[in-house]
Design a protein around this nucleic acid. Structure first.
Lengths: 223, 223
DNA sequence: CATAAAGTATGCTATATCTCATATTCTAAC
DNA sequence: GTTAGAATATGAGATATAGCATACTTTATG
């Protein structure tokens, strides 16, 4: 993890990503730039999260751990998006675990100095509301729709989103839980992809050989 | 539909439902009380919706119509909740169709006079954000979890929420679509409930005979 | 290093759910 | 009122997915 507060750097990035349409100007002086490398952790689970992040580049996995100690993949966060809104709004006191899937760049606002500014910034709050409203709408709609299709389709979509540089190597147990399918059936479908030449197994990894095939399965669902 | 702007009435209701924790005081003078009877329409689909409603009592069904003219049940709205946030935030320009399932009472803020007050009211925006955040979180979580259970469970939950005074009489075609299950399978499960004596068919209606049974099926899912 | 726990892998059976076919009401439009 | 289009109803066969058993690997832990 790398923090930059260089005025130059900060201002350029804020410009590019239209900071002023998302936050009021008063917040600009507090912005830091946090960058993370692939596989790095953005937050430790269970600990309070002292920033509001606006992720402008990259992709991350968000995890949650249950009472029994089991860890579950909760969602994929893709730029541009917020991270840490939940604890800012005090919907969830503790952070979920977040891991970078690719190199990530965030505009970071330290809550220590910005919390009350944020909670009184109508530009920000309007944006947040709009984003959350869209999320709530999309999320359940897409999820519901996707369940009308066989697992093959959902899995194809998942492989596309989680593979990086043509290589899929998620843990089967975790994915099965995330996609609400039995481990057995996931393996079965995976095998089927291999037989069809869509994926190729190489040690622990699966190489995507027929991208188009997966995309077609995904797009069938989306409308 | 009945509109009241009697100061008495408005103030009493606002007091009871903690208006001041949800909106700033400046909005108080604009509040109207709108009441609807069971089966009445709160909004015509496709038309702009000129109010923000805060529903303090009752339950409603929200519908959407697709390009092809098919109408779909989208969600159940239960007090306390907002109606019309989407068009306020301009996420969706036109209203969905909303039908009262029971008698409904709403605090209504006319957008003509209140729109910009609302969009600059940090108390309101904070609340809206929090509610939407919780919705986004819950919705997908519950939905996902529920799909891990057989249809019987989801259906039981649906019957409980949609029945009024112990009578279930939704259209099977519509429900099948809403619950993402085939019409055939829905009928099959319904029949099964009848055979088990949980429901009793009476003309077009189904009388709930064994509430506890349905509740148990529902609660199995919820955790 | 040894052992336990977790992940991977595969086969078989059971079941939830879908698809299609077909008949019978109901409802709305002319 | 007649007729077309929905909605209801039921049956039989197909398939997607779950469940269980079992074996082998990898990873963590003492």
């Amino acid at each position: 993890m790398l923090i930059s507060t260089q005025k130059n750097h900060v201002e350029r990035l804020c410009e590019i990503h239209h900071f002023n349409t998302i936050f009021s100007k008063e917040l600009l002086p507090y912005v830091e730039i946090h960058t993370f490398q692939k596989k790095e952790s953005l937050s430790q689970e269970g600990e309070p999260f002292p920033y509001l992040y606006y992720m402008v580049k990259g992709k991350a996995k968000v995890y949650m751990t249950h009472k029994n100690g089991q860890r579950t993949l909760v969602l994929f966060a893709e730029a541009p998006c917020f991270l840490g809104e939940m604890s800012l709004l005090e919907v969830e006191p503790f952070a979920k675990g977040v891991t970078a899937m690719e190199d990530i760049t965030c505009l970071a606002l330290p809550l220590a100095t910005c919390k009350s500014l944020l909670l009184n910034d109508t530009i920000f709050l309007r944006n947040l509301s709009r984003i959350l409203a869209e999320k709530a709408r999309n999320r359940s709609e897409t999820l519901a729709k996707s369940y009308a299709y066989p697992f093959e389709n959902r899995f194809a979509a998942f492989i596309l989103i989680s593979a990086s540089e043509g290589v899929y190597n998620e843990m089967h147990t975790e994915v099965a839980e995330f996609l609400n399918v039995s481990y057995r059936h996931l393996l079965f479908t995976l095998q089927d992809f291999v037989v069809k030449g869509v994926l190729e197994k190489e040690g622990r990894n699966y190489i995507v050989k027929n991208d188009a095939f997966l995309k077609q399965l995904r797009d069938e669902m989306i409308d």
